Simulated scan of single mutants.
Amino acid sequence: MEITIREGGPEDVPVILGMLDSCVQWLVAQGRTGQWGAKPLSQSSGTVESVTRYVDEGDTYIAEADGVPAATLTLTDAPGAYLSHLPPVGEPERYIHWLASDRRFKGHGVGSALLAHAAETTRRAGISLLRVDCYAGDDGKLVRYYESNGFARTETYVGTDDWPGQVLARRV
């Protein structure tokens, strides 16, 4: 399977929402609704607005597997407003939002390819800090996934409705 990465844009918002819905469906099938709930995220006006805003404000990338959109992430210069309580990092950074993959491509390395691309893009921009936050509940697999891609745990936080979160950072 050949993985290529292209820039995304507003026309990709439906594709990105489809990937998020695929993730929710996969999580629900495992009885893991703590991360994103049980309903398709494309039905949440808040999620649609968030994805659209980040695509408009940041740099969105789509990983394609043999030409089929398989995973996505968006890079911006700061974390989301929901993390405004964290201390500032005191240096330029790039921040990953909405990393998701169509679960049909689970295990094919599309997410890791995007994370490597984000690290390289950050480094080429002359920025040495790449951060992300994620769900830290259940079995902690998502946090370990980021660690396996070169990130280290920094701050923990509790989001809305006691949602357990973890911020991770990677030097590039």
Rank of each mutant, 00 (worst) to 15 (best):
G8N: 00
Y157H: 01
L75W: 00
P92C: 02
G58N: 11
G46M: 02
D56H: 08
Y61A: 14
A118H: 02
D161P: 04
T154C: 10
M1I: 02
I127C: 05
Q30K: 10
D77A: 13
Y61G: 12
A81G: 09
A70E: 12
T154E: 10
P40N: 11
A100F: 09
T72F: 08
D162Y: 08
L130W: 05
D102V: 08
Y157M: 11
S44W: 01
V28T: 11
L129D: 00
R94C: 08
T121I: 04
G37E: 08
Y61C: 14
I3K: 01
R144D: 13
Y157C: 13
V132W: 12
I16H: 02
K106D: 14
V172P: 04
F151S: 07
P69Y: 08
G165D: 05
Y146M: 05
V48D: 02
C134I: 03
T52G: 10
E91L: 06
A63N: 07
S112G: 14
A38M: 03
R6N: 09
L27G: 03
A70D: 09
V172L: 07
R124T: 14
G34Y: 00
D138M: 07
D139L: 05
T72S: 15
G107E: 01
A116S: 14
A38F: 07
K141P: 06
G150N: 04
E147M: 03
R103E: 12
D162V: 05
V15E: 11
V55N: 05
G150K: 00
G159C: 00
L75Q: 02
L130T: 06
C23Y: 11
A119Y: 09
R94V: 10
V13F: 08
R123I: 05
R53E: 12
G111W: 09
D21Y: 01
A38S: 11
P10Q: 15
E93F: 13
V143L: 06
V24H: 00
R153P: 04
V132P: 08
V24I: 05
S50D: 15
F151L: 02
L17A: 06
E91P: 06
S128C: 02
A71R: 09
P10C: 07
A152I: 10
T74Q: 01
R104H: 02
G90C: 07
E2W: 02
K106E: 15
I62L: 03
E64C: 15
V132E: 01
R171P: 05
D133N: 08
R144N: 11
K106I: 12
L17N: 09
I5L: 04
Q25K: 15
V28D: 09
W163T: 08
S22A: 13
G109M: 11
Y95E: 06
Q35A: 11
D77C: 03
D59G: 06
S42I: 04
N149R: 06
G58M: 03
G9W: 07
D56P: 03
H108W: 15
W98I: 12
W36K: 03
L73Q: 04
L115T: 09
T72N: 15
E64P: 11
D12R: 01
K106L: 14
T33N: 05
L17R: 02
Y82F: 15
D56R: 15
A65P: 09
I5E: 13
G46E: 03
D139F: 07
G109V: 08
I96A: 03
F105L: 06
V172Y: 00
A63S: 12
N149T: 07
V48W: 05
R103F: 10
S45M: 07
G111A: 06
W163S: 01
W98T: 15
